[in-house]
Write a protein that binds this DNA or RNA. Structure first.
Lengths: 246, 246
DNA sequence: GCATAAATACGTATTTATACTTAACAAATT
DNA sequence: AATTTGTTAAGTATAAATACGTATTTATGC
C-alpha cells in the first residue's frame, strides 16, 4: 500500500486512488494529476459483477464512469426489448456520454460483461475539472470526436452491409478492441451479443459462424472464438472501408 | 457597417468577420470574442453553390468548417457508390469532425444542399484556441457528445426499424432540424436524399410517401413536404424511443 | 460425479420485407 | 421543343426473419 502524505482513507482493495492508479490511458490520470494533488477525493470506485447493469436507460444522469478494470457493453433497448449494442468498452474508456451535461436521463444502458471495477465521477466535480483544465476538455472532446467517427462509420456499415458482412465486421471490431489471448479473442461473448452488435439475430450469427468455420476463416471452442485468417475477413468488407480502418 | 477600430480588410460581402457576425449559435462567436479581440484573422470565409462538395472523403485534413449560412449534408460513400447521409447541418454547426486532431484524412464528405457560406478555421489556429480556452473546448466536447448520442441512436434505429419507420424517423429528424416554413419543411431534399438518410432506396421512400399521403399524415407538392399529423408520425416510432427525442 | 437445465449448433421450410428492374409518364429545366 | 429529373407502378429476385425440430455441448445445482 502506498503512503499518501495526507490521511489514509478507508478503502477496499479495489478502490485505488488516482494517485496510485496504473491506468495511464485514463484521461483523468493523464491530465489532472499533473496539476492538482488532491484528486483522490473526486471519485468513487464501484465494483460490478459480471452481468451487472450499472447504467439503466432512462435513469437520471448524475455522473460519468471510467472503466478501471474489466469490460463493459453499452446498449440501447428498442421495441420488444431487442437490444442494440452500440459499443464495447475496456480499461480506460468512458461510459455515460453526457454524464456532465444538461441531459436529464441516460440514453444508454451499460452492463459489465465480466467482473469490472469502475471509477465514478460526479457531474459537478467533472464539470469543474473540465472548465478549469483546457487540456482535459480537449482530450475529452477528442474522445467523443473519435467515438462519433466510429459511430457514423457504423451507421454506414449497418445500412449497407449484408448480415454476413456485419458479423465479420463485428468480429474484426472485437479483435481490434480486445485483442487475442492464447489464440482466442480476449473476451467471452454469447452469440446473442454478437448478434446485438451486428444488428441481426442469434440464429444468423450461428449460421455465419458455421460458414466461416467451414471456410477455415475462424474456429471456435464453445464461446471462445479464434480468428484464423484475419486478412481473409478484412477482404470481404474492404470495399466498404475505403478510408477508415477504426 | 460597423466600424472596427483597426484596419478594414478587403472582404467580399459574404466574408463577415467574427466581430460583426450575427451567428450567436457559433461556438467561436460565443466563446472567443469574449476574451480575445483579433479573431478576424483566424478564419476564412468560403462560398459554396448548391451541390458543391467542399469536403471529399479521403482528402487530407487541414481544418474545420462552420456553417455561417446555408445547409449541408454530411455523408459517407460505401460500396458501389451508395451514399449514406450521416447527418445534415445548418447555421452554426460544425463540419469535419476531426479537423484539428491527428487524423490524416477526412472520413466523411460534405456537400452544400443550398447556397452556403462556410467559415474555415485551420487546424493549428483551432487547436491553439481550444487548448487555451477551456470553455471553448468544453462546448466543443458537448457538441460532439450530442452528436454521438444522436449517431448511436441512429445505429439503433437503422438496425431495428422497418423501412417505413426509418423514413418517418428521417421526416421527423428533418422537421426538428430545419423546421417549417409556410407549412412545408424548410429544406428541399430529393427523394434520393431522404433514402440516403433513411438507409433505403429512392423507390421505397416514394412508396412510403405515397402511403403517408393516402393516410393524410403528410402532403407534398413536388419536393416540398408538409407534415400534417406530426403526432401520428411520432406514434409510429414511439416504441423505439423511450428515452430520447433528439 | 451425476442429473438437469441451458446454451449452442445445426437443418429446413415458410413468410415477410426489402431490393432490384423496367417501363411509362409527369414535371421541371434548359 | 428537347432533355433531364422525378414520380408511380408492377413484377421478380433475394435477403432476412421467423418458426420450427432436434442433437450436442456446456454450465450449474445438488
Amino acid at each position: 500500500m502506498p503512503t499518501t502524505s495526507s490521511v489514509i482513507k478507508k478503502r477496499a482493495a479495489f478502490d485505488v486512488g488516482c494517485e496510485v492508479c496504473e491506468n495511464y490511458n485514463c484521461l483523468i490520470k493523464k491530465n489532472l494529476l499533473l496539476t492538482a494533488g488532491s484528486d483522490a477525493l473526486l471519485k468513487r470506485s464501484i465494483r460490478c459483477k459480471k452481468g451487472q447493469q450499472f447504467i439503466i436507460e432512462g435513469a437520471p444522469v448524475n455522473g460519468l464512469f471510467f472503466v478501471l478494470k474489466g469490460k463493459v457493453k453499452v446498449f440501447r433497448t428498442g421495441i420488444n426489448g431487442k437490444e442494440q449494442i452500440v459499443r464495447f468498452a475496456k480499461e480506460g474508456e468512458i461510459i455515460g456520454h453526457r454524464g456532465f451535461g444538461t441531459e436529464e436521463y441516460y440514453s444508454i444502458g451499460a452492463i459489465a460483461i465480466e467482473n469490472t471495477v469502475l471509477c465514478y465521477f460526479s457531474k459537478s466535480v467533472l464539470q469543474e475539472a473540465l472548465l478549469s483544465n483546457a487540456k482535459l476538455a480537449y482530450d475529452f472532446m477528442m474522445f467523443y470526436a473519435d467515438e462519433l467517427n466510429r459511430s457514423e462509420s457504423k451507421v454506414k456499415s449497418i445500412s449497407q452491409m449484408t448480415v454476413r458482412e456485419r458479423v465479420i465486421d463485428t468480429l474484426l471490431y472485437i479483435h481490434r478492441k480486445f485483442g487475442v489471448n492464447k489464440g482466442y479473442l480476449d473476451v467471452v461473448l454469447s452469440r446473442k451479443e454478437y448478434a446485438d452488435h451486428a444488428g441481426t439475430t442469434e440464429e444468423q450469427v450461428i449460421r455465419v459462424f458455421s460458414a466461416l468455420k467451414t471456410e477455415k476463416l475462424i474456429s471456435a471452442s464453445g464461446k471462445k472464438i479464434a480468428i484464423n485468417d484475419i486478412q481473409g475477413l478484412k477482404n470481404e468488407i474492404s470495399e466498404h472501408n475505403f478510408y477508415l480502418d477504426s
